[in-house]
Nucleic acid binder design. Structure first.
Ligand SMILES: NC(=O)c1ccc[n+]([C@@H]2O[C@H](COP(=O)([O-])OP(=O)(O)OC[C@H]3O[C@@H](n4cnc5c(N)ncnc54)[C@H](O)[C@@H]3O)[C@@H](O)[C@H]2O)c1
Ligand SMILES: NC(=O)c1ccc[n+]([C@@H]2O[C@H](COP(=O)([O-])OP(=O)(O)OC[C@H]3O[C@@H](n4cnc5c(N)ncnc54)[C@H](O)[C@@H]3O)[C@@H](O)[C@H]2O)c1
Lengths: 220, 220
DNA sequence: CAAAACCTGTTATACTATTAACAAATCATT
DNA sequence: AATGATTTGTTAATAGTATAACAGGTTTTG
């Protein structure tokens, strides 16, 4: 049953499948069953089969899925067949860590430009990435045709900086600040709220664990 | 309708409500309606009312919610009335950023111990937090009665280190590595998969945005 | 005080996601 | 080639989440 629009929950799992298919491929594995994959990615095998089926019949009954075929399919689907450039705004603590990491490995994503208001950082190169001043931001983003930004500025600057990003025609923001920013509806925001996640983990431990030690407790 | 077990989706929003209630309180606001709160936290007002109602009747019809009362209620519910100590394992790029940040602000959470295999880091103090050698880990975690760990070791060490953490009686792991670790069912894992989130954002931009510019696109 | 405006808590409904179950297809083996 | 073992893709059942709608209250206003 091929569909054009895939459920959000499925879309969120695709990069995970892709990553583990890479592992399997590099380990020389030729085929994989939904049950095997389930064990490594910690997603129910029925969910995996259902997820895959949104893209058509990718497997073979009685056999499983051909690793290479599946890998290539997801590579295209996830835009991993070409490099995606993104920018980072706010080269502080967290920004530096992300710059240095730079999503190397299997992910075909690269932070190709960074921006900071601090004149001591602006104009330098950090972990191989040029850091520009804020005045250059709108212009540079347009020149480099970047439409995704990682936002790691202080909380109090999140809204103002985001509005500048809109001016630059940005389409997606990965927001590491604890603020929920207000933006036009056509801009997608992915909030990465680390303090929230940690507090949620603590809440779960205090309120759920005692009762349901039965379930499999892998969250998110 | 008071309940003992709150839906997972609700639990994940509680820290966000708590954070914004703090903002409102500090801004001198006395009362708040679900509609007002909805605008700042970007959660539907009906969802907010439903979330709150799991804890009983916290508001007053025709009036709204008393900010201070609500704040104090969530403070208790979220264990924010006392300090929670957590540990961090793997003081590299990301580990350093998290150590330095240390969830100051409104969150009553503190990283009180860190661990690393690197003998140059072990034995030092980083951002005010003592870094211990791995040999001391099981012991220190037990002494300090820490049962939550932030895991920022290289991917290939994630599983092995996690198993050591189980020995130390850890109950929750915030896993920043791209690996899905295998653990006993009574240990809760919160995966923070940054590469995954970024790839998902890219996928959403490529496959959803064109069609539904209508919706409000705030994810996660 | 009566009327209008407001806002919660809950009921009803719609949507989204997960999982179990199994027929249909393939593969392995004798 | 027939039997048994696998494993998909899908249907059907269940679970979980979000939102609309509104009755039952509170506050505000004329
Ligand atoms: N560091 C962490 O581990 C961590 C964890 C959770 C959340 N966060 C959030 O991530 C954000 C960044 O955290 P951090 O610890 O890296 O902070 P930081 O203060 O170390 O870095 C912020 C950087 O942004 C720059 N900046 C300030 N105003 C700016 C502006 N208007 N435009 C562009 N750049 C500007 C600063 O010069 C600085 O380099 C914060 O919102 C923080 O709450 C950080
Ligand atoms: N840095 C980022 O921005 C980023 C982003 C996404 C994911 N991650 C993930 O987070 C993890 C850490 O990333 P990083 O960039 O900080 O890596 P890093 O290499 O800078 O740091 C890893 C640290 O772990 C220590 N370590 C190694 N083996 C250990 C062991 N067995 N026990 C204890 N400590 C050990 C190392 O000494 C080092 O200090 C990785 O799994 C990475 O994939 C990082």
């Amino acid at each position: 049953m091929v569909q054009t629009v895939i459920p959000k929950a499925t879309a969120k799992r695709l990069p995970l499948y892709y990553r583990y298919l890479n592992f399997l491929y590099n380990a020389g594995k030729k085929k994989v069953s939904s049950t095997e994959l389930s064990e490594v990615v910690k997603v129910d095998s029925a969910t995996i089969r259902r997820d895959f089926s949104y893209f058509g019949a990718l497997g073979k009954r009685g056999y499983g899925y051909d690793v290479e075929t599946l890998l290539n399919f997801f590579k295209k689907t996830l835009n991993q067949d070409h490099l995606t450039n993104v920018a980072l705004v706010g080269v502080g603590n967290l920004g530096h860590a992300l710059l240095n990491y730079n999503f190397q490995q299997t992910n075909n994503i690269r932070i190709s430009a960074a921006f900071d208001v601090n004149p001591e950082i602006a104009g330098t190169i950090q972990s191989g990435v040029p850091v520009y001043a804020m005045d250059d931001m709108v212009n540079q983003l347009k020149i480099q045709q970047i439409d995704i930004v990682i936002l790691t500025v202080p909380a109090e600057d999140a809204q103002a900086v985001s509005e500048q990003l809109i001016q630059a025609g940005i389409k997606g923001i990965m927001n590491f600040t604890p603020m929920r920013i207000s933006l036009p509806a056509n801009v997608r925001v992915q909030n990465v709220d680390l303090a929230n996640e940690l507090q949620t983990l603590i809440y779960f431990l205090d309120h759920y664990s005692k009762k349901d030690k039965l379930h499999h407790l892998q969250s998110s």
